[in-house]
Amino acid sequence: MMSRALSPTVVLPLLFVVVAVGLALYPLVGETFYVRLMAKIIVLGILAMSLDLLVGYTGLVSLGHAAFSGAAGYITATLILKAGVTDMALLLPASLAVSALLALVIGWISVRTSGIYFIMITLALGQMTYLFFHDVSYWGGTDGISVWDKPVLAVGGWTLLELSDRMVFYYTAWACLVAVYVGLWLLMRAPFGQIVRGVRINPGRTQALGHDVHRHQLAVFVIAGTIAGLAGFLEVARSGFMSPAHLGWHESAMVLIIVILGGMGTLVGPVIGALTLVLLEDWVADLTSHWKLIIGLFVIAVVLFLPNGLVSLLTRGAGPSWLRGRRATPAEAQAEGGDDG
C-alpha cells in the first residue's frame, strides 16, 4: 500500500503550486530569452490542460484540438488587423465564443462515435478547419497573419492591461494558467466531474445509472475547446502571429504528446509536459541537427518506462491505476449475455 502522504490527490495539486510559484518568480532571475520561452510554455500548458480534460478525464482522445486554439487565434488576429480592434473586452469574448461554437459543432458530431472512430473524426474535422483557414485567402493563406498591435484592457480611460508589455503579458498568461487549473480542478471534483469520471471508466453503466453520456461528453468538449480558445488568444497576444500551421494536425499531435508525456488525467502533468518538451527542444536543437530524432526517442522512452507520464516519478505506485488499464468499451458493457448462465 502507498503511504498517505504520497496520494496523488495531495501530490498533484502541491506539484502545481510549486510549478506556478516557480513560473511566477522566474522573470525576476531569468534571462529575457528564457522568460520568453516560459511565456510560450505557459500558453502551451493552458492548451495542454484543456486537452487533458478530454483525453485524461473523459477518455476522449482528440487529434483535432488545435482547431479550437487556432480558430480563436485567427479571430483575434483578424479583428486586430482588419478591424483595428485592440479592446480585450471585445477580443477575448469574441475569440472564446468562436472556439466554443466550433467545439459545439465538432463535438456534437464526434461524441456520437468512440475509440478509434473518435480519433479519426476529430482529426478529419480538425483538418477541415485547417483547410478553411489555409485555403480561404481572406485569412492570409500559408503565410498567416502578423499583427503589431496587441490587446489592451481598459476600463473608463484607465488602462489596466497592455499585453504589448512583455511582463504584463507574462503575468496575465500566468494568471490564466492558475485560473484554468483551479477552475478545472474544482469542476472535476464537482458532481459534474464525478459523472464525467464515470463516463470515462464505464460509459454503458454510467448511462444505466441515469446519466446522459453524450451530453456530458459534449459539455466537456465545449469547455475544453473554449479553454483552447483562450490559449489561442494568448498565443496571438504573445507572438503577434497566427498561421495555418497553428491548427494543423501536427500541432494537435504535439499537444497530445505533451499531455501523455506529462501524465494524463492530472492537469499538472500537461504543464510539466509543455515545460519539458519546449526546454528540451531548445536545448537539443543547439546540440545537433538531428534534434527531432532525439526528442522522438525521449518521448518513446518516457512512454515505455513511465506509462503514466513524468508526474508518476512523484506519485509512482500511487498514480491512478486506470491509466495503465484499458477502458471497457460500450460494446463490452452491453454484451452481458450468456457466459455465466
Binding site: Q194, I195, N202, G204, L209, E336
Partner: peptide
Amino acid sequence: GRSYQKTNILPELTCLDNCRLGALSRL
C-alpha cells in the same frame, strides 16, 4: 433501475463512489 447478469461496476472506484454515481442521477 436495472442490475446486470455480468457484473457491470466501475472497478477502480470505491463502493461508495459507485453508489454515489447512481445517487447523482437524482440531482
